[in-house]
Design a protein around this nucleic acid. Structure first.
Ligand SMILES: [Zn+2]
Ligand SMILES: [Zn+2]
Ligand SMILES: [Zn+2]
Ligand SMILES: [Zn+2]
Lengths: 132, 132
DNA sequence: TTATAAATGTTATATTATTACATAACGTTA
DNA sequence: TAACGTTATGTAATAATATAACATTTATAA
């Protein structure tokens, strides 16, 4: 059972926007879209984004400086994320593959470092773009 | 046998700096450090960085907006990169593990997407920081 | 209630990266 | 060598991404 997070007003506005968009959104595009709802400053957006990332409702796509709603109901803690990114249309989707996540979560090398978190980004061409 | 890339003047200055630093460096810190050598503008730095990334002499640590010299002589093409990052001291090292790279290079899911590239970042505490 | 933490509002500023345009150096081959 | 195309450089301006600092309000809970 997951912990229920009661989102605050700004957090809810911003999460709903990202979630409905169905894809990755950039911070200033989010800002532009929520100005009519009274969120006027970048910091208001970044604070909500930080919190949403922290509780796993969204993830940051590091290579794109963009944020996407979690598409994987079981990953509320954002400690093990994997994405596939189309380099042509920039479509992004979250990879939910238990073998992969098991493999990476258990990965260790000879550095003596214990990894508590990872983020993996795969790049390529999606079906649509490949057939063009 | 790898292709020999003759670095241009600016590319060489910037690669040498990053390489000697032994760790990740940020673009504007690089800029500051090479101003005495005549490189005065951000764009000069970013152009050299782009080229160095393209030919695999350096990699970008996406989660840190920083650049590190390739520590793995065999990865001149930057298509399959993995790093371990200490969240306390920000030490970064490139992971060179043939099992891991084989596993990820061959990874495919049911999306019909063929992945030509990946970047993986592991996070945790390094030995030193753990024992503090 | 009272204190504590979490969230908000606002202004300013810092950091990271690109556009646009002009010039110079380099490598190839006629 | 001369002409051509490609790559690299120089410079100024600006765009895009993100945080600092400070004041106030709202939610949580002892
Ligand atoms: Zn997720
Ligand atoms: Zn695509
Ligand atoms: Zn490398
Ligand atoms: Zn450390």
């Amino acid at each position: 059972m997951q912990k229920e997070h009661n989102l605050s007003k700004n957090q809810k506005i911003i999460f709903d926007l990202i979630d409905k968009s169905g894809g990755p959104m950039k911070a200033y595009s989010i800002l532009f879209n929520v100005q009519k709802k009274g969120i006027k400053a970048p910091l208001q957006v970044y604070r909500a984004l930080d919190k949403l990332v922290e509780i796993g409702k969204i993830h940051k796509i590091e290579s794109r400086n963009a944020f996407i709603a979690c598409q994987n109901s079981s990953c509320q803690i954002s400690k093990a994320t994997a994405f596939s990114i189309c380099e042509s249309c920039e479509n992004v989707s979250e990879i939910s593959n238990s073998k992969l996540s098991k493999y990476l979560s258990n990965f260790s090398d000879d550095s003596g470092m214990k990894y508590s978190k990872y983020n993996l980004e795969f790049f390529g061409l999606c079906k649509k773009c490949k057939s063009k």
